[in-house]
Simulated assay, not measured.
Amino acid sequence: MDAVKSLVSAVRNGLAGLADPAKAPAMQAYMKSEMPYRGAQKPARAALLKRVIAEHPLPDRVSFSSAVLTLWREAEFREERYAAVDISGSRGYGRWQDSGLLDLYEEMIVTGAWWDYVDEVAIRRVGPILRAEPETVTPLMLTWAYDDDKWRRRTSVICQVGSKAGTDTDLLTRAIEANIDDKDFFLRKGIGWALREYAKTEPDWVRAFVAAHAALSNLSRREALKHLGG
């Protein structure tokens, strides 16, 4: 686990070096975060992570998962969790992106419980695994669509954003219908977002879907038809 300790230490020290205490309070306030920020800006963080990942490679799947979870669970500043999310999606570790990581991503979704974490994990981690292993992931997303946790439910709705022609419209329909009456802003916004993105590929399908679902909230409907003249 020396590789894990080395990478985690390099991330923490690097973020400390990028800290800007003058910017941190505004960043925390904008994200409505209980966890404090260091004030490290995104471009600088991205450059840091690129260098650290190259200099501290993780040799196997176990060390990869351990590094991500260590940064995530032990985070004292929000940027450390951003680093965990970024490392989880590093191209160099793409060979481990399969359904075996769903428990890790579920933990990040449920304990992160805010859009800045959840949307990245849902769309760029869970989504590709869904497309690669639909037989395994589709039933899970259908279960999540009815879960008590709204962030699992939002994940089930938005996980296909960017799937384009590969979108499973049955899954999309069922995930939306499971949440169509929920008044939560993030669910309503997520429904509209998912439909708006799919409208770039199949506008007629989205128009028909909206027309057939009178229960859609005004927010969801407006977002879905945003670029369709609706």
Rank of each mutant, 00 (worst) to 15 (best):
P139I: 09
A16P: 08
I129K: 09
L195N: 03
G94Q: 12
L71W: 03
D119F: 00
D119I: 02
N13T: 12
W72T: 11
I53E: 00
M35P: 04
S6E: 11
F77L: 13
T143V: 02
P25K: 00
T111Q: 04
P134Q: 14
G192W: 10
F186E: 05
F209A: 10
Y30S: 05
D148Y: 04
R125F: 13
L18R: 00
R81C: 11
R196E: 12
M35F: 02
L195A: 05
W114G: 05
L142N: 07
S90V: 03
L140Q: 10
L187F: 01
D149Q: 12
R95A: 08
I87R: 10
S99K: 07
A215F: 00
A29S: 13
E202D: 15
R124G: 05
L140R: 14
T173Q: 09
Y37I: 01
R222F: 00
S6H: 10
D103N: 06
A10K: 08
A145D: 02
E197N: 14
D184A: 13
D147I: 06
P57H: 01
G100A: 04
I109S: 02
R152K: 15
D204T: 14
E76T: 15
V157Q: 10
R222N: 14
I129Q: 01
P134G: 13
A26D: 08
P25N: 07
T111L: 02
D182S: 09
R154I: 04
M27H: 06
Y146V: 15
P203V: 10
A194W: 11
L15S: 03
K226R: 15
S163W: 09
L104N: 04
I53S: 05
T169Q: 00
V11N: 10
R78F: 15
L58W: 02
A24L: 09
A194F: 13
R73W: 09
F186I: 08
A145L: 05
E177D: 14
E107C: 04
D98I: 03
G94L: 03
Y37T: 00
I180R: 01
S88Y: 08
A19C: 10
L71V: 12
E34M: 00
E55M: 01
E177Y: 06
Y30P: 05
I176K: 00
E133G: 09
K150W: 04
G127T: 02
I109R: 05
L216F: 07
I87Y: 06
Q160E: 11
S220I: 10
S63D: 14
G89F: 12
R51P: 04
G94P: 00
V8C: 06
L48K: 07
D181Q: 11
S156P: 04
G190V: 08
E197V: 12
Q28R: 15
Q160W: 08
K42T: 01
S33N: 07
G39N: 09
P139E: 06
